[in-house]
Structure formats: structure tokens, C-alpha cells
Write a protein that binds this DNA or RNA. Structure first.
Lengths: 345, 345
DNA sequence: TTGTATGCGTTATCAC
DNA sequence: GTGATAACGCATACAA
């Protein structure tokens, strides 16, 4: 097999009719006779004709492709967002270019340029840099886009996010109710709007509840397990240890727990830990992580729908923002603080 | 912004030279004068020109896109394969269409048709159906492809897999050395060459070591956690329970462990469990799963390289097969069997 | 209802 | 060195 795709011209020749009639027949135009259409369809089928999306895209200026920029496929939370996007992509007969950026801006720009070159109909940016000048330039001169889980403070992008404030508030309330007063907080990467919102929500809750507002209780981190590990070691080495930690995400929370275990602390007896994302494995028995649930797939769906609306509209109207509710899932990593702080081991 | 991409014609007009010269200049053709090239580059840059991959693909019959079919992004093992593919895709300046099939053949066919319509240069099939007639038809009339982790017994595809026999053999040896004689085996989906190979390796090892070859020790399953759970319940409800279980993959192993825990059995004291894949979380403290390590990312790289070679060659030469070594990573879910079988709870 | 002609943005061929 | 021009496969305006 030499892989020479059969073209609409081949079909026309085989049918002995004009090329445009084949096109019309296949496109379901109403003014094609029943017999012609039937015949064309049969021949197309027999010849294995498949319209070239490439040629169609060139002609119609619509590629039926969407670019998805994702920070890290390896993070279990991200594929869920992508699944949501894919759900609507399939519905809309679009294909997905999926690009990993590792949170690296050069890599992100490289991918974005490639997507623009491919003339994607739109882009979904999941946890990407959205405020950088070069990114902005690409965004402004490109097709419609939606940001997911990270928002620019300076630009009005369509945006889908979750109720960070509500989530963190609920988590801190939960910990406070259990009796914790010193709650450590691992903040996400600088430059992430989501991380920023969460930090502010934490501070507000701490203040409102009259908890310990010691600045050393905020650890500058990111969303990785090693960072969680370092955060855990840091917090637990403090002269006055926190008895609970709000992590930046689930993976990060696992790092915290690992560190605690290594240092001889029991979770949740000596240290409560709350994650965020509610990845599938958080519910798994041995992990059993208390965490803030995000409607990841639904958010992916919403982002893609917003995008498709934009693609169809062609006009640059008022930007839309969607915020999804979150809820705390209490599992086994939170408990009341130990009465007497455990001596350091 | 109306998102009207600037074309090569715009650049030519702005430069006041012929369109084809712009093309030549940008393409780095040797016979363009230094000054012209420089000027063209400047203008192109200033205008924000980005060549249309769509038009180029139509003209050159090379899209610089690769289709990746994946059984399930949500399974933590798959993204690793994709990462490997992406590594070489970036090197080769290709973009990736990533498609989830959920192991569903209709979905797979839908995606494959879409990929063919997009005129991808090649396809990587990760754990996909490769023996179905319709799939075969698409494959035969399409661009080059490589199968990864699943192989057709009837067709000579380029194939990248891991040493299933070696992996399972090592795992069963390990369990036998610990003193286990009744080892349950959760087999992967029917129709998966990989699953089949593993089953045969298990049987061979059992036979060679003189272990219990009771057919009820083989559970027909798949790669999901719920199935692992069912397998666990099944095995542990047997009048003569196995003392160790070789799962079909890590996620499946976690299901087995969950079931065991629910039924009051301790892992590894009452039941040893071995997984397969070595997903990142397998090493995580609370999971600490003994498992067979697969070089997932490297396999993805190898598959993509094989594919690119094929894409460049254009000829349909001898098919190539690559098998990656595996190794057992002994962690905390395997131990010698309890002396006296624990009474059922 | 069907056919003809044109153009989408490139690259390639061949004159100049 | 440079510049017309054709062609890739399709959709569409328009003619028949």
C-alpha cells in the first residue's frame, strides 16, 4: 500500500460526473437528485474516499482542530480536563492537538506558534502562562481562546475556573472546626491566578476565624510532590509546628504526607492534610485523602463549549467567565489535633 | 482582533518582491541574496507572518502531524507513553493529535477516520485494537503506523513492546522465592497480545516452578480498578485462597489491595500483590507497590522514532519490532505467606 | 439538478 | 537571483 489517498476527483471520474456534484452530493446539499447522491455515496465508499480536512481547512478557513495546552499530562488532574474538552470536540467533529508545556513558557510559546501555524480554530489553555507579553501577542493575533484554571489579571479572556475561595474557605473551616489553630498553607506557583486566589482565601479564613496568622505558615511552592515533601519537612521542623496543612493540590499533599511519615508523624493524628483536585486515586483506600473536589471534566466541557461559541460567533464580544463550585470531601487525612504536640523524632 | 492570518503574499507585497522569492528566502534556499533574505525575514517578523501548515500540507503532502491513539488518558501509565512520543515529535517539528478511545473499537475507528482525514503523517496506536477488519482496512489504506503495547498476531506492524515474559517470570519467581505456591493471576483484556503473552509467561513459570496450576487461579479481567477489586474478592473468597496475586497492571493491583483490605486481609502479610507498569504513584509511601517496571517514556520515544523512519522512507520495508526490558521493583506489597491461612472474616 | 471556474496559501517548476 | 505560474484537494459562486 502506497497510501495515496483517493480524492474527490477520483470519485467524480469514477462516477462520470462533475467534481462539484460529488462535493455537493457528499455535503448533503438539497438540490442533488436521489440517484446521483446514492451513486456518489456508493462509489465514494467503494473507493475508500475520505475528504481531505487539510484541503477543506484551506478552502473554508476552518480547520476543525483545537489546540489544548496543558501543563503536565503526568499530573493526574489534567487528563480529566482534557477529557472534558474532548467530549465536546467529538460532538463538534473537531480534533485535538494536545501539547505539554511543563509549565515552561518557552515550551508553551513553541507549542502556541505551532498551533497557530496549524490554523487551529481555537485554543484551550489549561494552567498556562497568560500574562506574558509574547504569549499575549500570540493570543491577540490568534484564534479565540479560553483559559482554564489560570486567569490573566490584565486581560479579559474567556475563563473557566473553580470557586477557589469557596473551596479553601470550606477546607479551613473544616480544619478549624476540628480544633486546628495553626494551619500551614502551601501556595501554588507565583503567577498563577488560581494560586493567588487560594492564598487570599486562606488568609481571609484565618483572619475571620482568628487563627494563627504567622507568615511562616505560608510556604511558597508549586504543584509537585517533591515540593510537597519539602513543604512538609519545613513545616514540621518549625519550632511551633502547624497541626494541619492545606496543600496546593493532591500530588503536593501526598508529598507532605510522605515527609510527615518519614519524620515519624502520623497522619492524621499528628498532622492533618488537605489536598485539592480530588484525583481518582485520592479516594483509594491507602491514600484516602481529604481534599477539595474540582469538577474537572465538567470544566473541560464548559471551556470547550465557550470556545466553540466563540469560534462560531467570529465576533469578539464580551468575555465570559464561568466558575464551578467545589466541595470538600472529608476522608482520612484530617482529624482533631493531638492534645499535646508530639515531640520531634 | 479579527484573527486574519497574514500570508506570504502580504509579505511579498510589503517587500515589493515576488511571492516565490519570499518563499525561497524563508525556506532558506541557497540562491537568495543575503540582503533580500534579510529584508524578507524582517518584514515577515514585523508583520507576524506564520506559514500556514495547512497550505503547506496540501501542497507537499506532508502534514507534520502524528496521530496518537490511546486507550485511556486517565490511566496514569498512558501519559508516559505519550510523553515519549511527544519528545520526538517536538524534535521533528510535528504536532500530535491525541485521541482517547476508551478501548472502544467504534470510538477508535471514529478517531482513526478523523486522523486519516487530517492526513496525518503517521499514527501511533497505544494499546489499541489492531486485528479488527475495519481497523485493518484503515491501517492498510493509511499512512505508516506503529503499534505500542499491543500487537497483531496476523499482521506485521512495526511494534514496540516490553518483555512481558521476562517481567512476569521475574515476578512469579520472586513470589515463589518468598514461599508462595498458590498465585492468582488477573489477566488483561481478551484480544490484547500483551495480556496473552503475560498469561502464557505466568503459566510457564507456574509449571516450571511446580506451583499450583489450578485454573481457578486465573481471573479474566481488564486493566481497571473495579475489576481488580472484583478479582480480589473472587480470589479471597475461594475455599483455597491464593496467598499472592499477580495483577494485570498497577491500577488493577490497587483494586485487588482494596478488596483485600475490605475483607480484613492484610497486604502483604495475608496477601502479596504485584502490579505492572510502575506508575509514578506506585513508589508513593502509602501505596508502595511491588510492581514490574516498564520503560514507558522510552518506549514512546522508540515508537515515534520507528514511525518517523517509516514516514521518511515512504517504502513499506521489513517490519521492525522492539522489545524493552522490564524489571521487578520490590516494594512493600509482597512478603512471605502467613504460616497458617487467616480465617475468613 | 448539474457543470465550470475560481481561489484558499504554499511549494515547485521553469523561464527570465 | 528573481519572478510568473501551476498544482495540491476542496467548496462555492455562478452559468447552463
Amino acid at each position: 500500500m502506497d497510501h495515496k489517498p483517493v480524492t474527490i476527483r477520483d470519485v467524480a471520474r469514477e462516477c462520470g460526473i462533475a467534481l462539484s456534484t460529488v462535493s455537493n452530493a457528499l455535503a448533503g446539499k438539497p438540490y442533488v437528485s436521489k440517484e446521483t447522491r446514492q451513486h456518489v455515496k456508493e462509489v465514494a465508499e467503494r473507493l475508500g474516499y475520505r475528504a481531505s480536512s487539510v484541503a477543506r481547512a484551506l478552502r473554508t478557513n476552518r480547520s476543525f482542530t483545537i489546540g489544548v495546552l496543558i501543563a503536565d499530562v503526568a499530573n493526574p488532574a489534567f487528563p480529566d480536563f482534557v477529557r472534558g474538552v474532548e467530549d465536546v470536540a467529538i460532538r463538534e467533529k473537531c480534533s485535538l492537538f494536545v501539547c505539554n508545556t511543563d509549565g515552561d513558557i518557552e515550551r508553551q510559546i513553541w507549542h502556541m506558534q505551532s498551533l497557530l501555524g496549524n490554523r487551529v480554530d481555537g485554543m484551550v489553555l489549561i494552567s498556562q502562562h497568560v500574562d506574558d507579553d509574547r504569549v499575549r501577542d500570540l493570543l491577540d493575533n490568534g484564534p479565540p481562546h479560553v483559559t482554564l484554571q489560570r486567569r490573566s489579571p490584565r486581560f479579559d479572556d474567556d475563563y473557566v475556573g473553580s470557586d477557589n475561595v469557596g473551596g479553601i474557605t470550606e477546607a479551613v473551616d473544616h480544619l478549624a472546626e476540628l480544633g486546628h489553630t495553626r494551619i500551614g498553607f502551601v501556595r501554588g506557583p507565583m503567577g498563577s491566578s488560581t494560586a493567588q486566589e487560594r492564598l487570599e482565601a486562606y488568609r481571609a479564613a484565618v483572619s475571620r476565624l482568628g487563627l494563627d496568622a504567622d507568615p511562616e505558615l505560608v510556604f511558597d511552592g508549586d504543584y509537585t510532590m517533591p515540593t510537597g515533601h519539602r513543604a512538609g519537612r519545613f513545616f514540621l521542623a518549625l519550632p511551633r509546628r502547624p497541626t494541619a496543612i492545606m496543600a496546593s493540590n493532591d500530588i503536593n499533599a501526598l508529598g507532605v504526607i510522605d515527609a510527615a511519615t518519614e519524620m515519624g508523624f502520623d497522619v492524621p493524628d499528628d498532622l492533618s492534610v488537605v489536598g485539592l483536585d480530588d484525583i481518582a486515586l485520592a479516594a483509594y483506600g491507602r491514600i484516602n485523602l481529604t481534599t477539595i473536589h474540582l469538577q474537572k471534566r465538567a470544566m473541560g466541557v464548559a471551556a470547550a463549549e465557550l470556545l466553540m461559541k466563540r469560534v462560531r460567533a467570529k465576533r469578539r464580544g464580551q468575555s465570559r467567565i464561568m466558575t464551578f463550585p467545589t466541595h470538600l470531601v472529608v476522608r482520612g487525612t484530617t482529624a482533631p489535633p493531638a492534645k499535646a504536640p508530639k515531640p520531634r523524632s
